[in-house]
Every structure is written in C-alpha cells, then in structure tokens.
C-alpha cells in the first residue's frame, strides 16, 4: 500500500507517495528526479548508488526509502553550494579522476563522508574508503589523488 513519506533531501523537505518496498535509489531517481546516484548492480556490490544518510554512506539500491525517513539524505546534487563546485568535485576534474563518470557521483559521496571522519588520511586509507565503489575506467589512482588533494586543501 502506498503511503506518504516525508524525506529531507539536500536540506529540502520532500513529500513522496511510495510503497514500503521502494528503495531509496528508486525514490531519488524516479520520484524526485535526482538521477545523480546510479544503479549499476542493484544489490549493494558496487557503490554507484552511494548517498549519505545522516552523514554515513549507504548503498541506496539496498536501502528502503522509508529507512531514511526523518534522516538527512545527501546526494551528489546537494554538493555544490552557491553556484560553486565542492572542492572534491573540483579535485576530481583536476585529476582526471573519472572517465565515463558513471561511478563518480557515488565515489565522491563516499569520499565526502570519509573526509569528514578522517580529515588527514593516507593514500592507503583513501583506497580502503572507496574500496566499495567499483570503477571500471580509471584504475582509481587519480581518484585517490583527488581525494588526498582535497584533504590537504581542507587543512589550509
């Protein structure tokens, strides 16, 4: 049975009318038309659908939308503020940290949560933090450099 659910997405209150079995990813993409998070595996194996719920990365393809009710949902669309890209986004462009870009929104969201909990990371820690975000194009190293660069930048 469908029901009305109030979600907070990128700081905006959004009311959606959904079935309990709707995943957060489906609701973000199909109801709210926030298509930045991608479905690549549909079973939590690749991280392309990563969004933040209360600051923690979740695979939104295996998270029910109702699990996120009353929590702060953050997607790639909420990252740039006041017309400016987030430093992570800039760093990803600078470092050629994407090729096809399909995994990029998920990886950037993982990186954002990671830098919050670990502001001065080593490369090894960064690799581990994005180890659940599968990328088929880049070989990861440029993304690791981009995240490291952002971390160093935050210190300034």
């Amino acid at each position: 049975m469908k029901r009305s659910v109030l979600l907070s997405v990128n700081g905006e209150r959004r009311e959606v009318f959904i079935k309990p079995n709707s995943t957060l990813l489906e609701v973000l993409r199909d109801e709210l038309l926030l298509t930045g998070a991608k479905e690549a595996c549909g079973s939590g194996e690749c991280g392309a659908c990563t969004v933040l719920v209360d600051g923690k990365p979740v695979n939104s393809c295996i998270t029910l939308a109702m699990e996120a009710e009353g929590k702060a949902i953050e997607t790639i669309e909420g990252l740039s503020k006041e017309g400016k890209l987030h430093p992570l986004q800039e760093a990803f462009i600078d470092h050629h940290a994407f090729q096809c870009g399909f995994c990029t929104p998920g990886m950037i969201m993982s990186a954002k949560a990671f830098l919050k909990r670990s502001p001065e990371p080593t490369k090894e820690e960064i690799r581990n933090a994005i180890s659940g975000n599968i990328c088929r194009c880049t070989g990861y190293e440029n993304a690791v450099d981009a995240i490291l660069d952002t971390a160093v930048g935050t210190e300034k």
Partner: peptide, 26 residues
Amino acid sequence: ILAGGTDLMPRIKRGLEKPGLVVDIK
C-alpha cells in the same frame, strides 16, 4: 528483521526471502 540490510535486501530483491513485514530495528 532489518538492520544494515546488506544481506537481507539483496535476498529480498532476488526473491529468496518474501516477508510480509520488514521490521527495521535501527
């Protein structure tokens, strides 16, 4: 019973588990 869901949700999606109720205990 749903906690992190990393095992349960893929099972439900693949039709290996067909619960009438999902109880989120988080």
